[in-house]
Amino acid sequence: MALIWEYRFDFLAGVWWTVKLSVLSALLALVLAIVAGVARSSKLRVLRIASGVYVEFFRGTSALVQLFWLFYVLPYLGIDLTPLQCATLGLGLCFGAYGAEVVRSCIQAVPQGQLDAAAALNFSYFQTLRIVILPEALIMMMPLFSNLLIELIKATSLVSLITIPDLTFQAKSIITKTYSSGNVLLVTLAIYLVISLIAASFMRRMEKVLSRGRQTGQPA
């Protein structure tokens, strides 16, 4: 364990990258998921098809190959992204596709009665979406998003393969320096677990905030 302590700053640097990347790509994924999920439940065929293609493509292909493509192929097309931009974009697109399905199914689960009431009050489509559907659907989405967020955090380890010095990258380089793979990997696993637990508890808190006032008997 003295060994681990010696490399604590390498671990910390890795954690910083992993967390930064998780937050950035989760934010991008959230926006994409909502846009694509809303488009998928739209009345307009064009929007449904476009978002369908996006979802099927990005959840049906390997995330690692997507990252490689952004990292190695895009430069040939004249688009030069930094490794961080590649990683954020790659993970964001991929998890946005998973998230879009969550958004779509939760939007469809909003009771028809709510939509009738909104129509009877003459809300426009976007007002209905903003005032009625999304607040309602968001609560249903939280446990599912929580799952996806943890998946995403673990998937960030892929970015070590496109030169980003994240937690996995650091672990590997510490191993090559120390030849002590068992201990280093054990600590690495523990760190991922801690990050995931923190993320899950954050999501639970968000869920509670969003569903305030829903519990019967709770003072307003």
Partner: peptide, 24 residues
């Protein structure tokens, strides 16, 4: 007025009644 009320659960009583005057 509907059989099952169909109030918006994310809004208070005041918010439910004020929503349409405000937005519509």
């Amino acid at each position: 007025v509907f059989q099952n009320f169909n109030l918006f659960p994310n809004l208070t009583a005041l918010g439910n009644v004020a929503a349409a005057p405000r937005h519509v």
